[in-house]
Simulated assay, not measured.
Amino acid sequence: MQLDGLAAAKDQTAKTRVAIAGATGYSGAELVRLLSRHAHAEIVGAYSSESFSIDALVETKPDVAFLATPNEVSADVAPQLLDLGVKVIDLSGAFRLGEPSHYPSWYGFEHPRPQLLAEAVYGLTELCNGELSKARLVANPGCYPTSVLLALRPLTYHIDRTQPVIIDAKSGVSGAGKKADVAYSFTELFGNFKAYGIGKHKHEPEIRQGLHLGERTALVFVPHLLPTDRGIYSTMHVAFMQPVSNEDLAEIYADAYGNAPLVRVLPAGQMPELKSVVNTPFAEIGFQVLQGGKRAVIVSVIDNLLKGAASQAIQNFNRMCGYPETEGLA
């Protein structure tokens, strides 16, 4: 009986061994910070995108590997880790799209293991229904899609698909990654504000897929660069098949996020602000019905490096391993 008690105590203190590839990038550094304080995680390896190798990573014997690496690197490395029995949470876009033919046109490469696209669990944590606990491979959503899908997915079957879905989204410059480029330098961005990637941003097909829009519904996605280091502010304009009230939308969001500890839905007419979520793992959503309920403006804000990347990856890790969802985050 005493031995059984010792075994139980050992199980309670056992930690999941984790390795991080891409630990020196913005999202990777946040992963290291969050996992280092996680009660049930032990970091056994942390590597830059340029310096890590499969052999070095595998030598650390991780249970779970986080890949904060470029798209093509993740597409190559994740299958090798899965074949060796290591679970993978990938923060790149390598496994987010379900259709292999989208990779050459949107990401610029043929997918090396297209059969894994059907297996990968799209890790928009709050909208997963038990899939994460059985997942070997999690595709962590992109930052813009996270802000958009949290706001619009609960409204999917109310949206009028004969009308365009318009998304005006703004991101801090860290969303472009850690790279030397004049376009992202202080002198170019300070006091400036500009649109970019219209009609060709990699997150567009991910948003279309997540909203089940098909190819016929017009999606107008216009990303912008804010002269700030982090945060995403997405303003969405949608039309409805049948008129809805602010009370209807409040009820829909309450059903979707009533038990979601990291999503805050504001009262109708109250719009969120970046300062409420920057440097936190939270998302905030605001809404206002217009034109007698025929249309609405929805606003969503997140921290692009946390809820849009690292902290959402930790949420997915927690659900994958059976830990409290906010462990390491709250």
Score class of each variant (00 low, 15 high):
residue 248 D to A: 14
residue 183 A to T: 10
residue 199 G to M: 07
residue 186 F to A: 04
residue 309 A to Q: 00
residue 70 P to C: 02
residue 323 Y to D: 07
residue 241 M to F: 08
residue 137 L to P: 04
residue 104 P to E: 13
residue 253 Y to T: 02
residue 194 K to S: 11
residue 118 A to W: 12
residue 296 A to D: 02
residue 157 Y to N: 14
residue 255 D to Q: 11
residue 143 C to T: 13
residue 136 R to G: 12
residue 179 K to G: 15
residue 222 V to H: 05
residue 263 V to K: 13
residue 78 A to Q: 09
residue 71 N to A: 13
residue 33 R to W: 01
residue 156 T to V: 07
residue 319 R to G: 01
residue 67 L to Q: 02
residue 35 L to W: 10
residue 301 V to R: 12
residue 63 D to Q: 12
residue 249 L to K: 11
residue 160 D to L: 14
residue 151 A to E: 14
residue 316 N to L: 03
residue 325 E to S: 15
residue 314 I to N: 09
residue 136 R to F: 03
residue 53 S to W: 05
residue 114 P to M: 10
residue 299 V to P: 08
residue 194 K to I: 01
residue 179 K to D: 02
residue 313 A to K: 10
residue 134 K to G: 01
residue 170 K to L: 00
residue 68 A to D: 07
residue 147 S to V: 10
residue 138 V to Y: 00
residue 30 E to F: 02
residue 114 P to W: 09
residue 173 V to S: 09
residue 262 L to C: 15
residue 249 L to A: 09
residue 151 A to T: 14
residue 41 A to W: 12
residue 39 A to Q: 13
residue 115 Q to H: 09
residue 293 G to L: 03
residue 92 S to D: 08
residue 115 Q to N: 14
residue 181 D to T: 14
residue 281 P to Q: 11
residue 95 F to V: 07
residue 15 K to F: 06
residue 100 P to T: 01
residue 202 K to V: 15
residue 196 Y to G: 07
residue 86 V to G: 01
residue 292 G to L: 03
residue 134 K to P: 01
residue 121 V to E: 15
residue 252 I to K: 13
residue 319 R to C: 12
residue 192 N to S: 14
residue 246 N to C: 13
residue 128 C to A: 06
residue 101 S to C: 04
residue 319 R to S: 12
residue 89 I to A: 02
residue 215 E to N: 09
residue 14 A to S: 06
residue 203 H to Q: 07
residue 222 V to A: 09
residue 158 H to I: 03
residue 27 S to L: 02
residue 245 S to A: 09
residue 248 D to C: 10
residue 264 R to F: 03
residue 275 K to Y: 10
residue 54 I to K: 06
residue 14 A to N: 03
residue 305 L to A: 08
residue 294 K to G: 12
residue 287 F to N: 07
residue 254 A to P: 00
residue 307 K to L: 10
residue 119 E to N: 11
residue 235 T to L: 02
residue 136 R to I: 05
residue 308 G to A: 08
residue 149 L to N: 08
residue 42 E to N: 11
residue 224 H to F: 00
residue 305 L to K: 06
residue 238 V to F: 00
residue 92 S to V: 14
residue 216 R to F: 08
residue 40 H to E: 08
residue 143 C to K: 04
residue 63 D to S: 04
